[in-house]
């Protein structure tokens, strides 16, 4: 079972949370997305036990929630007009 995709997904997720902690939200968002894509591939195409699939899906949900938050934050940050002197 080529679980290098699983390993890749885990590496990406770890990297994403490092970037997240380092406040590189743009990079963290991209990495969260990539890691979920890999996890999803593993769940769909690399037969895992139902239990393993369920726990991977739950992880995906967490990462997606976090990614959503980062996306919202970035959107707001970008829209933030430069504080014009009143």
């Amino acid at each position: 079972m080529a679980n290098n995709n699983l390993q890749k997904a885990i590496d990406l997720a770890n990297k994403a949370s490092e970037e997240d902690k380092a406040k590189n939200y743009k990079e963290a968002l991209r990495l969260y997305e990539q890691s979920v894509q890999y996890f999803l591939h593993v769940v769909k195409y690399e037969a895992q036990g139902e239990k393993a699939k369920q726990s991977i899906r739950a992880k995906c949900a967490d990462y997606l929630d976090r990614a959503e938050q980062l996306k919202e934050y970035l959107k707001k940050a970008e829209k933030q007009p430069p504080t014009k002197p009143v």
């Binding site: 894509q37 769909k44 949900a61 967490d62 997606l64």
Partner: peptide, 21 residues
């Protein structure tokens, strides 16, 4: 509770929602 019952399709949908900038 959501996380425990999520399906592949739901994950895919959220991914697309994220990706589409």
């Amino acid at each position: 509770a959501k996380a425990s019952g999520i399906s592949d399709e739901e994950i895919e949908r959220q991914l697309k929602a994220l990706g589409v900038d």
